[in-house]
């Protein structure tokens, strides 16, 4: 195991994050604040409590997840796509580094960034609403697992993409709609019967629901199922990556 290599890949990626700290943090913080102003205060004041939780509070976990998912994917996909794009990948390929070491370095850094971001978003939210976390450990657990799972997913996209369009198309066309329709801003019990059933096919629902439960003990599906789904998603990503590794998919000819 080339631990030194994992370390330098990880810190090199984190360095990129620090260098662009302002951009990295400003946009999610601003959009969170905007959501709060629009949904929490303006519209939220006209919406009654959902299962005993005020609307402004109710959307906090969903908002956090929205940022975590999109940022994990974009950080991890960009992290591995960029060296491919500029050609600096030659060094990674010629180094005594295995595919998994590369993976740990890049995905670890992307997940760390998302975790930092989630913390900042929760802190920002705390300025608008009074945030009390019922199960901090569960909250952290869901958060960490989600960061890792979606960073893995982003890594896969970064490997697969050979141009900028492909890099952006999945987050744009799949992830964003899934997050919006996955109960980030509402409880699925507010939907008509048919749509409730359809929504159960949306994996993001389980993430948001479990995450929200750790805050308010309010959930759309049971926590056990949420946890299972997170692990399932994690396992699927690892399986895809293992397959990519075995076939040398898109990394080298």
């Amino acid at each position: 195991m080339n631990l030194t290599a994992i370390k330098v890949i990880y810190f090199n990626e984190m360095l990129r994050f620090w260098k662009t700290l302002f951009q990295s943090v400003a946009s999610p913080v601003i959009s969170t604040a905007l959501y709060f102003v629009v949904f929490g205060s303006a519209i939220g004041s006209r919406i009654e409590n959902i299962e005993g939780v005020s609307y402004g509070l109710f959307i906090v976990p969903g908002l956090t997840m929205l940022s975590v998912l999109t940022q994990s994917i974009s950080n991890a996909s960009f992290g591995i796509f960029f060296p491919k794009f500029t050609g600096t990948i030659y060094e990674l390929l010629s180094a005594p580094v295995s595919f998994y070491e590369t993976l740990i370095g890049y995905v670890g850094a992307a997940a760390t960034k998302s975790l930092i971001l989630a913390t900042i978003i929760l802190a920002t939210a705390n300025l608008f609403v009074d945030l009390n976390i019922a199960h901090p450990f569960w909250m952290l657990g869901f958060l960490v697992l989600t960061c890792i799972a979606f960073s893995l997913f982003g890594f896969i996209i970064g490997l697969w993409a050979d141009n900028f369009e492909k890099l952006q198309i999945i987050p744009l066309l799949i992830i964003t709609p899934l997050v919006f329709l996955g109960g980030s801003f509402y409880s699925i019990s507010m939907l008509p019967d048919l749509w409730q059933k359809v929504t159960l096919f949306n994996p993001v629902l389980y993430l948001v629901s479990g995450f929200r439960w750790s805050f308010f003990e309010v959930s759309d599906v049971s926590v056990g199922i949420s946890l299972f789904m997170v692990f399932l998603f994690l396992a699927i990503c690892i399986a895809i990556i293992a397959w990519m590794f075995r076939t040398g998919y898109k990394l080298k000819q």
Binding site: T4, A5, P96
Partner: peptide, 19 residues
């Protein structure tokens, strides 16, 4: 080369990458 890396940073990175 990574455009935004420093000379020292990139050389140290390489050394570490090679274990």
């Amino acid at each position: 080369l990574g455009a935004f890396d420093t000379v020292w940073g990139t050389v140290r990175f390489s050394r570490g990458l090679f274990g």
